[in-house]
Design a protein around this nucleic acid. Structure first.
Lengths: 204, 204
DNA sequence: ATAAGGTTTAACCAGTTGGTTAACAAATAT
DNA sequence: ATATTTGTTAACCAACTGGTTAAACCTTAT
């Protein structure tokens, strides 16, 4: 009997929880809705994850672990600064167009629970700026780019790439964009942001 | 009897609601907590604002109306582009250091309720990009700045200024900042961001 | 003083929420 | 075969939530 021999129930729960938590947030999410989305009994959520809080943390860590590698790529590989920036911008934008709720979800929940990020810092693979700082200062010393604080540059790169996804409703309203023109706009940023950053740090 | 002849109850409620909504969000906020914060009976909230939703909307519109004038300043005054950028960056950062919850609150709630911004657009004084676009294109034509899409430039300016406040927990974690060094970092952005933007659009 | 209006309160209410439980089913071990 | 463990369900529960109500309290006009 092809009894739909489902995926692991645990995985189904995680996927449903991801969907609900990312669109409603911790406070707005309902355990019943997660159960319904997963197509299972609510008691199962507690059987596998014990509490809403623990289920949420599982989803959150999962989401964060999707972003960390992309950050580590720009922070720790050995390519030139402009290649790093280009790769990160293109990769990040491409990725986010497929996971539009992710950035807002992470930012929102980190702000809701300030000491949440402390737990994440203990995770292996949590990004550090050390190597990026060295690289930036090296390129400054070699006269390839203008003097700039590495941390400020890093935040600028993050800001220019992340904000359009978090501020989507604002941008659509200000620029009078519908869903289609917003997507075009974001797509064009893959090159526009790279040009903007490179231009702002290069020596002319 | 100096019976503390309080401020208007309505104002007390709005202030308490602002505090609670901005730190907990719509879903996380509790009417009882707002009443306690205001030091009044919970029934008063409904007496003056009828429902949680209406109280929330009052607080939200109030918050948004603090930001609109700053945006309109950069978008509609007649100063040069670099002056606009400088003024906006300095003003915005100064203002946000005093209202740290504001940007996250607005962004978060706009994302939670997509059609919320439609109501705001009907408000008088809702920022438009028309004049800013003309200004940018004019400076491009006159050869004062490099060619750049005005909308992209506008979003870049917003991103560089707003993100550090929304992404505070991330930035603190990545750059290993405590509260004090974070504030120093943000303060330095008042000039760092201006330099960054000006440099990226000026002809060399 | 007192009637009338708005303001404030404690107590209450129905619906919702995260979480539990006891019984049942399916798989696994003996 | 049958005992044991693991997975699943419906029903239940206590706590909480936004909202209501009826009575009390002020203020003010008459």
């Amino acid at each position: 009997m092809s009894k739909k021999k489902d995926k692991n129930t645990e995985v189904q729960i995680l996927e449903a929880a991801k969907t609900v938590f990312q669109s409603k947030g911790m406070d707005g999410a309902r355990m019943q809705e997660i159960a319904d989305t997963a197509g299972i009994n609510k008691a199962m959520l507690h059987y596998y994850f014990r509490s809403k809080q623990l289920l949420f943390e599982a989803v959150f860590k999962n989401a964060f672990s999707l972003l960390a590698p992309q950050l580590n790529a720009i922070l720790n590989d050995d390519s030139s600064l402009s290649v790093k920036i280009t790769n990160f911008t293109v990769d990040y934008n491409t990725f986010m167009l497929k996971h539009p709720y992710l950035p807002n979800f992470i930012i929102q929940e980190l702000n809701r629970n300030e000491n949440f990020i402390e737990k994440l810092k203990e995770t292996t693979g949590f990004p550090t700026l050390d190597k990026f700082r060295l690289k930036v200062n090296e390129e400054i010393t070699k006269g390839r780019i203008i003097p700039i604080d590495a941390d400020q540059l890093f935040v600028n790169i993050l800001a220019l790439n992340i904000f359009p996804f978090i501020g989507k409703p604002l941008i659509k309203a200000f620029a009078n964009q519908d869903e289609k023109s917003y997507k075009t706009f974001v797509d064009q940023r893959k090159t526009a942001v790279v040009d903007f950053i490179i231009n702002s740090i290069k020596k002319h």
